[in-house]
Amino acid sequence: MFRLDRNAAKWGNGLIQKKGPGPIKIEFDLYYIYLIVGLGLGRTESLSEQDSDSKELIRYYPKAYQSVRHRIATLLLYCDLKASSFDINHKKIVKSKIEEILSADSVILLSDDSCKQLNNYANGGFEAIREELVNPPSDSALFLIYVYETFFHKMFKN
C-alpha cells in the first residue's frame, strides 16, 4: 500500500486543491511528484510504517494513475538495478530482481517489499524537495516550476 510520511503530507497539504483549477487535487498527486523526484535522484529515505509517523494513502493506484503503473514498476526495477550496481546482462540476477520487485498478484504490479521501497523513494523525494524549499509556495504552478528548475536537470542522469 502507498504510504506517505505525515510531515510530507502536512508540508504539501496547501498545494492540494480538490476543487481548484490547479492539477494537484489529491494526496496521491503529491506522492507522485515526491516519487519521481526520489526515483530521479536515486534517493531513498526509510519510511516508518508506524501510524503516528506515516499515513496510508491508498492500496491501489487512483484511476488517473492506472495507465502509468507499468512505467512506475519499470523505474523501480531500473533504479534498483542501478543502485545495486548489478550487471544488467547477468540473467540470474535480473531474473531474481524481477521476481523480487514485480508481482502479478498485486494490482499495483509490485510485491509488498518493493512497494515499501517505492514509499522510501517518495520519502527521499520529499526530503530532497524540503531541503531546498522550506515552505511550499502558495500555488501549484509555482511549485511545479520550482521542482522542474531545481531537480529535473539532475534527474535520471548517469
Partner: peptide, 18 residues
C-alpha cells in the same frame, strides 16, 4: 499547469537519457 502535469504523468518524458 494541467497540460504540464498530464505530460509529467508519463515519467519517461523527464529525460531522453533515461
Amino acid at each position: 499547469s494541467n497540460e504540464y502535469w498530464d505530460t509529467l504523468k508519463n515519467p519517461f518524458t523527464i529525460s531522453n537519457e533515461l
